[in-house]
Amino acid sequence: MNQKTILLVEDDYVDVTSVKRALGKLNIPHDLHVAHNGVDALALLNGNSPDGTKIKPDIIILDLNMPKMNGIEFLGIIKNYYSLKSIKVFVMTTSSEEYDRAAAENLGITGYILKPLDFEKSKDSPASSTFQLMSELVN
């Protein structure tokens, strides 16, 4: 299994930890980069980040509700770049954000991860199955 580069765009530290733990548990080899909002994420993709890192992720896990630039805005921008267009985007959302979910769907996404990321209790929970699917997709 070759290692996959994952960009997590999420402002909530708990959610970031949650995703990290989930990835660790599922034994998916990965290189995880974290951006706290859309602006930082774009900087990472363009190599404009403070430390000059430039990444080319296989998967973007995107939170919708963030400061500075929210998930929908970010999605709208990367879908207009030829080089970024093909990256698989998974949106992390709560069940009540139906309106935003519809907007994300219109922009073109690969899948959802439903918050809360409740994968500990059962391997069949929506979140864990999405992660499974995710790992299969990128292999």
């Binding site: 909530d12 708990v14 949650s18 509700n65 709560t94 809360p116 990321l117 500990e120």
Partner: peptide, 20 residues
């Protein structure tokens, strides 16, 4: 109520991690 749920989820997650 929607915004109240986010920190709540965090508390729940952290509690579970502590146990785990």
């Amino acid at each position: 109520s929607h915004d109240l749920k986010a920190p709540l989820r965090g508390i729940d997650n952290i509690t579970k991690w502590l146990e785990e």
